[in-house]
Design a protein around this nucleic acid. Structure first.
Lengths: 269, 269
DNA sequence: CGATCTGTTGAAGTGAGTCAATAGTGGTGG
DNA sequence: CCACCACTATTGACTCACTTCAACAGATCG
């Protein structure tokens, strides 16, 4: 059966994706990108690169500082599973840099990755006592952990926070429905085209280059995200290459040669 | 290609599912089920059967009455498409009775149903200017429409409303991830077992009988929900019948003969 | 520089889809 | 009340997109 997870692999930070010292012609992921350098904001938030993309955005300085007092910053190594489905949800987590995959497992090991998260994304459901998915770092990641109960209490006092979470949840829900359409009704070719365009779009929204699309995750992860096997992912990429729609630059970067045609494919013509 | 929608069919209220006059031995869907008959609550909410399952639940009498002033109750006939993806989101809608399917379409007509909604469910995303899915009545349904802008304004003043919507969105998100696992990694047999158990569970939560599972939707809808074809749905039901796990009572009711085994199947053993 | 991953390619198998015919089912009207 | 109609569901025969199994090729690293 397809989609079974292999034994947990432990890979170094540089093993996959965008290594820290790889930036030849474009800004590296880890380049500081502070959106507004307000000196009144406490560390660690003051220098946070992800602030303008996080739930924290739009909060007043005073509100950010109250959040900052709850924050437990941490670094998680690539390959680490730091949330397990079913486990008691002690923390809510905000992702500041790097890439995380969230997924669900079947008892026999089949895996469905339900999302790849990037800087500014939020993990955990405030009102749920247990996590409903597992999460593993794809690259090294930096996170802010918030004790869930304290965060919930703070939400009572900062109405903007609840509103931002609702907006975020709504967007995630819309994206989940898009993904259901993909999983249930698209062909392998359409899935891969959608995936590449989605990553490109995502990078653009984060202010990162959107053309050589960065694939920090391996083929197995792509397969488990799209409901395919690694072999089919490989073959389909090769096919798109043959059709002059993409060009691989190494295994982790894809140049989109004909975006219009890729969009047509991803929409099912 | 599988999953294409046929020409829109217009069927009568009684054509499918649970006809109003069909209740032989169990309470009909349309049986009044007021949870708390508070006389201070204005019509139409005062007699609403779905109130205890809706976003309205938990609001004070005064708050409910403010909502009631915004409400535009309506009845929608089975087969009617009353929300179209991309259309400007003028209304938010609360479902009071009946069954609705929400879905997304590909240009060539392939369809993915992303959810079946029942009494108490909420349609529309408060902060989105456009609907991200289409919605069609599966049976005749009764709804409350709220003008979106007015509803949003009211949300500022009733914090409990926002919180309830966030809770609801979180639950939907968790369920969407479950469905992604189903669509991406489960076999037809596992999908059907999950589907039947899901409907049963849903009915139970609404205080309705959970054993003869009611299927108000047709095989085509089930197929488009599970990422299958009608033929495969039929064949798989037949196979479960042969294995003595279910018994059909007509085409719209399923008796679960071995719930434990069905659960094992739905979980992938 | 061999060991170990990850990714690619080839050959063969299969679960679910497609196409087609048949059987129910409820609605309607004579 | 029954005969007919339109539609939905079921079943069968065949096909195919994707999986499975297997071999090989690159990359990375101690």
């Amino acid at each position: 059966m397809h989609g079974r997870v292999a034994a947990p692999t432990r890979m170094s930070a540089e093993a996959r994706g965008t290594p820290a010292g790889d930036s030849a012609a474009r800004p590296a992921f880890s380049e500081p990108r502070t959106c507004d350098a307000d000196p009144a904001v406490l560390e660690p938030c003051e220098s946070c690169h992800a602030r303008c993309h996080s739930v924290c955005a739009g909060l007043s300085v005073e509100e950010i500082n109250r959040l900052a007092l709850l924050t437990q910053p941490a670094t998680i190594g690539a390959g680490q599973t730091f949330i397990s489905e079913g486990e008691s949800a002690v923390h809510l987590i905000n992702l500041n840099s790097g890439c995380v995959k969230i997924f669900k497992l079947l008892p026999d090991g089949r895996r469905q990755i339900t999302g790849f998260l990037f800087q500014g994304d939020f993990l955990g459901i405030p009102f749920n006592e247990a996590y409903v998915y597992s999460a593993e770092a794809v690259t090294d990641v930096q996170v802010c952990r918030f004790p869930r109960r304290a965060f919930n209490a703070l939400m009572e006092e900062i109405p903007g926070l609840e509103k931002r979470l609702l907006t975020r949840a709504s967007n995630e829900l819309a994206q989940a429905q898009e993904q259901m359409l993909l999983l249930g009704r698209k062909t392998a070719r359409e899935k891969i085209a959608s995936f590449l365009l989605g990553l490109s779009e995502r990078a653009r929204r984060l202010g990162l280059p959107d053309d050589p699309v960065d694939l920090p995750m391996g083929r197995a992860d792509i397969a488990d995200y799209l409901g395919l096997t690694t072999e089919t992912v490989s073959r389909t990429l090769t096919q798109l290459k043959r059709d002059q729609l993409i060009r691989m630059e190494g295994t982790a970067h894809v140049r989109l040669l004909d975006r219009a045609e890729l969009i047509a494919i991803s929409d099912g013509e």
